[in-house]
Design a protein around this nucleic acid. Structure first.
Lengths: 341, 341
DNA sequence: AAAACCTATTCAAACGTTTGCGGGAATAAT
DNA sequence: ATTATTCCCGCAAACGTTTGAATAGGTTTT
């Protein structure tokens, strides 16, 4: 690599026998510059493949045109879908995106927030790591650089948050089960302080209430991590009950798939005996047999809107923190695990 | 956000009544500086949460400590696994990573290479977009900035490349099938100029040859995109043959799953009647029934080694292009679709 | 004809860091 | 005592860009 040095403003200025400042202003379309010289400069710049030295520019303006993204796990399908949306929108708005994984480690998350802000990103997009207990570091970076939360959020942090209509989604899912004649609907959820899980649980409760179905705590199961394995274990528990449920709503697709596997083992007919509904519309949903009814979350849209709000906040350089929750709509995808045609 | 300005070298220097340059050198552990002052400076820097202005630094040194990554599709599981490795290794080496998606669009890929190099990344990691025909733009950026290819590579580009032992992996997969008694092994592969597919095909051929099995072109099927749908279609074709195969090797897990679905439809016993082997060890492999025998590609390791080589190239600022192919080992994971215990 | 006002341009400073060079003080060699 | 050497440190330039202020020339207003 011969690192042929890039053309600079100075060279352009010299060739056209004008000052560096006019060259700069001409390229930035400054009103003070005559159309004639603007034309000249822009043409020469084009010809010499001029592109501003991003460091000099960023150094001068303190704007990097870089967005930082921190997610718990990049290999999670839904997350990568969001990332897709983020990348796309950022690109069209002229921003680059640097991404980091917190691996659900709160300390690492704090560390990353710090290094990103001192790195000079213009804004940060953050999906909270599981069990983020101390929001101090986040509040800290919040008064250094604009930040918007998405997917995994917390109302303890005053900033704009982009989420999915978890409660309504869960409500619709449960109502769908009720409409297919199910009356005893179990739920596999996360333990307490998962924002998403609690919202979905609320939707579950509301649906039961509106349809006058009494809640039975025996079929409300909680677990630390809603994995495939835990999905199996939980349904094993459900199957051991005297009164088995006739449907299972798992807070997560992987848990739902675990449930299906457990039901398979006991040769229980899905959905006739027990229906299963998941949440996320993961890629597995159509792989598993029977195909899984689940809630589709528009990942790309989430990413896109998160970027939109972040950039809006960046470019209106008001120093006030806007705290606003944007909700993106989901929709239920009915497949064989809950209703066969 | 009050944008409380960061502490600068000047402030540290003033407080300690030394010059800016000594402060700088003290922090960079320059031999000219006495241990005493180094100590002083570093302590104060720590106390004031000093962190160098990355722009000024990058501006001065023309080093950004940013790596650029371009992949066809970030939501592809294997890709995101590689990314994981990249992020991890880059972080430990003190680099940030900006990522872009080419969406398998060659023009976009070129565009991204250009903007990344003019953006000032220190190096680029690239997984070629499908059907990259013109390598000109790549050769162009290659003499501006160090570049290493991974996963989707091309020998037309003189640079270090990190790949998987595709040929051996395929060979082992086929040999495994032969060892289980299969004699008529079909392959579902990609059409021509996919580097990966051709390598795997070569392994297939070699395995047959070494075991004195004649190749039958009727059971060698090619397709443009090895999707689930195409996997189904191809196996439908295979099932319509007078002489059906007794095993199917699909170049890709998704196609293998398509094959399994097709076999299910015709109630063909897997693996007794027809065995199936895939490639990639996607997350689906254990979801599908029967679980899929497949080749595990160590994504994280690929990402990690790619970063290692790239950084090595960056930091030894020899201006020569090193062209070297690093091969990462895979291993076959035998599951129910090829061999039941 | 002087004053006021545009218009198009240039000057020069500034952003924070790194680094070649020079120099003073202390120590060692002659 | 003089010279050479070593050890620390400061000076000042430089990187490329943006931008407030100044300026020159030209036009309009009084």
């Amino acid at each position: 690599m011969n690192k042929r040095k890039a053309t600079t403003l100075k060279e352009i200025a010299k060739k056209l026998d004008i000052s560096i400042s006019t060259a700069s202003r001409a390229l930035n379309n400054h009103p003070d510059i005559s159309d004639a010289t603007k034309e000249k400069v822009q043409q020469l710049a084009e010809k010499l493949h001029y592109s501003p030295n991003l460091f000099a520019q960023g150094f001068r303006t303190q704007r990097s045109h870089i967005l930082g993204v921190i997610v718990p796990n990049i290999a999670h399908y839904f997350t990568s879908t969001i990332l897709k949306g983020i990348l796309k929108e950022a690109e069209t708005k002229g921003y680059k995106v640097i991404v980091s994984e917190s691996n659900n480690n709160e300390n690492k998350q704090s560390e990353m927030l710090r290094t990103m802000s001192q790195f000079g990103v213009d804004g940060i997009l953050l999906a909270l790591s599981r069990k983020t207990t101390s929001v101090d570091s986040i509040l800290n970076t919040l008064d250094t650089v604009p930040l918007v939360l998405f997917d995994k959020v917390s109302h303890k942090i005053p900033c704009t948050q982009v989420v999915v209509d978890e409660e309504i989604a869960a409500f619709n899912a449960i109502e769908h089960l009720i409409n297919t004649g199910k009356k005893r609907i179990a739920i596999i959820k996360e333990t307490e302080n998962s924002f998403n899980s609690e919202k979905r649980f609320a939707g579950y409760l509301r649906a039961l209430k509106e349809h006058n179905i009494e809640v039975d705590k025996k079929i409300i199961l909680s677990t630390e991590d809603v994995s495939l394995y835990k999905g199996r274990m939980m349904t094993n528990i459900l199957l051991s009950l005297k009164e088995r449920p006739d449907a299972i709503f798992a807070i997560t697709d992987t848990a739902a798939i675990g449930a299906i596997k457990a039901l398979h083992k006991y040769n229980i007919k899905i959905p006739e005996e027990i229906a299963v509904v998941g949440f996320s519309n993961s890629i597995h949903a159509t792989i598993i047999q029977p195909s899984l009814t689940t809630v589709d979350q528009p990942g790309e849209k989430i990413g896109k809107t998160a970027v939109m709000y972040l950039i809006k906040e960046i470019e209106s350089n008001k120093n006030e923190i806007t705290t606003k929750t944007v909700t993106v709509k989901t929709h239920l995808i009915v497949r064989d695990s809950s209703f066969k045609v």
